[in-house]
Write a protein that binds this DNA or RNA. Structure first.
Lengths: 144, 144
DNA sequence: GTAAGTGCAAAGTGTTTGCATGGAA
DNA sequence: TTCCATGCAAACACTTTGCACTTAC
């Protein structure tokens, strides 16, 4: 069994919740994509594989995945929420191209360390940092 | 006339738009508050001063203010958009307390410089950085 | 006088919820 | 057999839009 699946199942059992095929299918789908997904894209991906779930279940399951730490829920400048799997040791930030919509991930310990230091100076206890850099990716230049 | 008002009026004239009392009142109100406002709070502040405008006009005017660079539109983890005035030389990021909802501003050239450098390495041309640090502010500790 | 702005209410959007039915434990 | 989960549709919260009337220019 995959690591994430174990975490999810343990979480469900510990909380008196049920392990359903819908929940496992959604977990699987989220972890099989590298991209950031919104609820609708996830729903569409499920349907294109004939793994039928309702939109409500998608939202409810994504919530659970966030609660047990397997997913992250964000807004990246769009109107809707996007979700991404959480992989330990793979924390990262985003560069978002305002022309193509493309999202690049990056991470840098120097930035994170400095932010942590600033928090300490202000007496703020950080849970997590969300950095979104908006601008133009290389491939967008031609399209302007 | 205040700097922001001049910018706004110039922008309107240049674009064949009209300078209305509603638009000026809203600009004034936004620039008279230090906080981040959502459309409804702004509407409420206007009403409490008997400066009557409709909700639609609030949204439409905030849009204009964003377009002419006098306001910034963001999501800070909440469901709705918040707006803040843009004051030159006062760019900043946010620390958001997940318990009290309190928002602190901060700015640090070291972080910004490092981010700019990272962008350059990736061939990304940044327009702006949005950093949201979520966590607990000092006054939230007692409430847990 | 004319084009643009306003307020209102209706329509949109993305997300959440109530309820009857279905399914895991 | 007992709750919990699901699917559906209705409800929601916030934002945008169409339209008749008003106002800046």
């Amino acid at each position: 069994m995959k690591r994430a699946e174990k975490i999810f199942i343990d979480y469900l059992r510990e909380n008196g919740l049920k392990v359903t095929k819908e929940r496992l299918m959604l977990l699987d789908e989220l972890f099989n994509t590298e991209e950031h997904l919104d609820a609708d894209s996830l729903l569409f991906r499920m349907r294109s594989q004939k793994r039928r779930v309702s939109r409500a279940t998608v939202y409810r399951t994504l919530d659970l995945l966030v609660q047990c730490g397997l997913a992250r829920k964000m807004r990246l400048g769009k109107e809707n929420y996007v979700y991404e799997k959480v992989v330990p040791g793979r924390s990262h930030h985003h560069m978002i191209c305002t022309v193509t919509g493309k999202i690049m991930e990056f991470w840098d310990s120097e930035v994170d360390d400095r932010l942590r230091q600033l928090c300490q100076e202000k007496g703020f206890r950080p849970t997590y940092f969300s950095i979104s850099v908006y601008g133009l990716s290389q491939d967008a230049d031609g399209e302007r």
